[in-house]
Computed example of a mutant assay.
Amino acid sequence: MSDRLEPDGAVGPEEEVVRLLVARLVLEGSPRSAGEDEQHIRTLAAAEEELPPIIVHQATMRVIDGAHRVRAARLRGEQVISARYFRGSALDAFVLGVRANVGHGLPLLLKDRLAAAERIVGTHPQWSDRMIATSSGVSARTVGEMRRRMSGKEYSGTRVGRDGRARPVDAARRRSLASDLLTENPGLSLRQVAEVAGLSPETVRAVRNRLLYGKQPAPRPAGTAPRAPTGGPVGQEELLRRLAADPAVRQSDAGRFLLRALRAQTMGGAEWQRIVDRVPPHCAALVEQAARESARLWTDVAVRVARKSATAD
């Protein structure tokens, strides 16, 4: 890490950690409608270890992620703070700030995440619902409803997904058209079908392969859970029973580890409350941070499994 102070106008690579004067930093434009949490600031200020680097918009010196850490540094009387530069646009800086505050630290309130999602729909209409949802911490369905409510904000043509690839908004309809063409005219080439349906030849090839295996033209959207085998919701105990009964799960090391990890989460609310009541006050902040990180990791696991299921559909 560099110990030098960055002169005005200096540009460092985004991965480089630099030392910035706290007095130069701008704290405004936060997605938090209620501002910073004073108790969280005092907790950070009392920590003995150095806090993680903040993220600063290089063009404006506005703090994108780390306002609580900056205020904690001021409370400590520190003159400099570790930081990383972001050199993108102001609009992208806001998105980065929202994404960072959804993923770690003190999470954004639901109303702030909804407000951020609505703003991103307006500033990044070319992004897919799922990409905006991932950035703002709301569901893709909620983002889709926002688009329909915001007159003049709907974006036609293509949208950019989380993988950076641009896809047609009506991709499902185009895949369905390609499926019909392949079924009714098996002699057509991939390129001919692609030209009529408005898809790439590679996508048409994927549609054809899915038809050969008796599948639908398009896979289930990532993050969409398959229907439960029964008509109603299934409890955690029943889900674990079904998993444990599956030989593919219980007869592998990874499967057994997964079952043990899931069983550790099945305690009732009263049992968890007894544990919470016995957390030493001086450890509360650490336990809170560890619990939030565990929740984030399990959410990430759920998203990855859903994505895998959608790909295999």
Rank of each mutant, 00 (worst) to 15 (best):
P53F: 09
Q58F: 09
A46C: 06
L21D: 06
S30G: 11
A67G: 00
V63C: 09
E38S: 15
T43Y: 05
H57P: 12
V18C: 01
S33G: 15
V56C: 14
R19E: 11
Q58L: 01
A67V: 07
D37T: 00
A34P: 00
L51F: 08
L51M: 13
P31N: 06
A34S: 14
E78S: 10
L75Y: 02
G77F: 05
E36T: 15
S33W: 08
E50W: 02
L75M: 14
R76K: 12
R62I: 04
H68T: 13
R69E: 12
H57I: 10
P52M: 13
A23Y: 01
T60I: 12
V56Q: 03
I54E: 02
I54P: 06
I54D: 05
V17P: 06
L75N: 06
L20E: 04
P52K: 11
A59P: 08
G66H: 06
R76D: 10
E48T: 15
V22S: 02
L75I: 02
L44T: 01
A73M: 12
D37G: 11
G77M: 03
V26Y: 04
G66S: 13
L25C: 00
E49T: 05
G66R: 07
R69Q: 03
A59V: 03
V17D: 03
H57C: 10
T60K: 03
D37R: 12
L51I: 12
V70D: 08
E49F: 13
T43H: 08
H40Q: 13
D37I: 10
R32S: 11
M61V: 02
R32Y: 04
L25Y: 01
Q39C: 07
I54T: 09
S30E: 03
V70L: 05
A72I: 04
D37E: 14
E28V: 10
H57W: 10
A45F: 13
R32G: 06
S33Y: 08
V22C: 05
V56F: 12
A46E: 10
R42A: 15
V18M: 02
E48S: 13
R69I: 07
L20Y: 02
S30C: 08
A47G: 02
I64N: 02
A23P: 01
R62L: 06
V18K: 04
R62Q: 13
R76F: 07
L27T: 01
E78H: 05
A47K: 07
